[in-house]
Amino acid sequence: MPQTLLITGASSGIGEATARAAAKAGWNVAMLARSGDKLDAIASEIGDKALAIECDVTDRSQVEDAVSQTIGKFGGLEAVFSNAGTGVEHPGVEKGKPVEWKDMIDLNIMAVLYTAHAALPELRKTKGHFIITGSKAGRDHMKGSIYSATKWFIHGFAGNLAEEMREWQGRCTVISPGMVNTEFFDEDKPTKLQPKDVADAVVFALSQPDTSCVREIHLMPND
């Protein structure tokens, strides 16, 4: 019976590529994002293995409902890829915009926590896997970057969650890419990492035997 992967931020970029790669690898995929029309189009291309759920992952009740919809559709949940995230238009601290910081923290941090809180009871049942999109920015100090600080949180949280999940043979992985060619940037970046590169790393982490937990995969552009 196919296993099920829930993906946040699934309407484009890394999330969309992961949905397609996971479905190709035999997984059911529940795809979450605020862009319902985009999700529906992707799901129609993937077919019966896909479930599109319009969801604002900064709203805890919507996340809980999405997990319930996933269980109702596929009967269980074996993995989650908490991928939704954003940056800010005005970088730095002194010249930064606190309202942008709050919106970013709500998505980059609180939405991850809401997703983990909602999904862990189901993942415990299946000894499942929680995967989070981190960043090279969560490994390096970057001048005045609040975005980088949110990713430092993610890297620390992923390690802590891995230890908690280990108590019941669950697994947690942080995927740590350098620059990825997504809508995050205004211009095309053909020589940088591609969304499929990160998607393949997610599928690799999911494919490991029960005796192994890949705690982090760090990817960098090869140019």
Rank of each mutant, 00 (worst) to 15 (best):
G76M: 13
N83S: 04
A84I: 08
V88T: 13
P91D: 03
G92H: 01
G92R: 05
G92D: 02
V93N: 03
V93S: 11
E94T: 12
G96C: 08
V99P: 14
E100K: 06
E100G: 01
K102E: 15
M104C: 06
M104V: 00
I105K: 10
D106S: 09
D106I: 09
L107Y: 05
L107Q: 08
I109D: 03
I109T: 01
M110E: 12
M110Q: 10
M110C: 07
A111C: 02
V112W: 04
Y114F: 01
T115S: 08
A118W: 00
L120Q: 11
P121F: 05
L123T: 08
R124M: 12
R124L: 14
T126R: 07
K127W: 14
K127C: 10
H129I: 07
H129W: 04
F130L: 09
I131Y: 02
I131R: 06
I131F: 05
T133A: 04
G134D: 00
A137G: 14
S145R: 01
S145D: 02
Y147D: 01
S148P: 08
A149D: 02
W152D: 02
W152V: 02
W152H: 10
F153D: 00
G156I: 02
A158Q: 07
A162Q: 08
E163N: 14
E164L: 10
E167L: 15
G170E: 03
R171K: 15
T173G: 06
V174Q: 01
G178S: 02
M179K: 09
V180E: 07
T182Q: 05
D186G: 12
E187L: 14
K189G: 08
P190R: 04
T191A: 10
T191G: 13
Q194L: 02
